[in-house]
Amino acid sequence: MVYPLVDVFVYSFEEGYNSASQTFFGVGLYNYSRVLHDPYFLQALKNTFILVIITVPLSTLIALLISVGLNSITPLKKLYQTVYFLPYVTNTLAVGLVFMILFKKTAYTDGLANLMLAWFGKGPIDFIDGPYWAKMFVLCFYTIWVVMPFKVLILTSALASVNQDYYNAARVDGTSSFRIFRKITLPMISPMIFYLVITGFIGAFKAYSDAVALFGTNLNAAEMNTIVGYVYDKLYGDGGGYPSYASAAAILLFAVVFTITLINLSISRKNVHY
């Protein structure tokens, strides 16, 4: 049952493994050093970290804002909830194609995003084939768009389940609404926020299909590869056939995610109220 884990570990230490003949000539850390010195892997590592650092806090914050707003209204609440949930059920690759068209600058048209930039007097930028930060912006934007439904859903139900008595008591005491939010709402839903932060970190570290949706399957050429993308590229595709490198990269990813989750857990012990 733990076979996959052991198996990948074994692969990652077998040097010079050949898929066709299933042979290898040594055992050691060569695969790891090879992966760690691969510029594509370093690029992927950098991209993934930037993506994680930007999208996780931002998406959680926006989701919190939206959920609080959603919880304070009665008319149209169901409609908004339904609309917000739509991205969850649509194919990531399909909508990614729409985003690509919105942001892409071609010979025929500058695209809609650039039209809007032009309203503010900014020049056209190719967000899909252009400068690095422009591509990263689209990737982060799309990632936030994709993860929002889940976060809003979780936070809305967490907010709705806070006992109303606390609010009534606070109101009788004449507490300001900002104070109510900070001293009652936030502590009450902190376990759920924490849950979202952890799953958000894990999910963002594993980002892959969003990037493919925007920039195509050749992510290395677009400088937009992610760690998971690197793993799959090594496994199969143009640079494929190297399960050992793929395994080594996957183990590295696992180690990173594991460390971050442990850090999260230790931080939460001080700040989360169960």
């Binding site: 049952m1 076979y3 996959p4 198996d7 594993k206 793993v231 399960p243 996957a250």
Partner: peptide, 16 residues
């Protein structure tokens, strides 16, 4: 406990 094994590792083995 199996749920904790990341999908990416399982996929490599499954692929092989």
């Amino acid at each position: 406990a199996l749920m904790m094994i990341p999908n990416e590792l399982v996929i490599i083995t499954n692929y092989q």
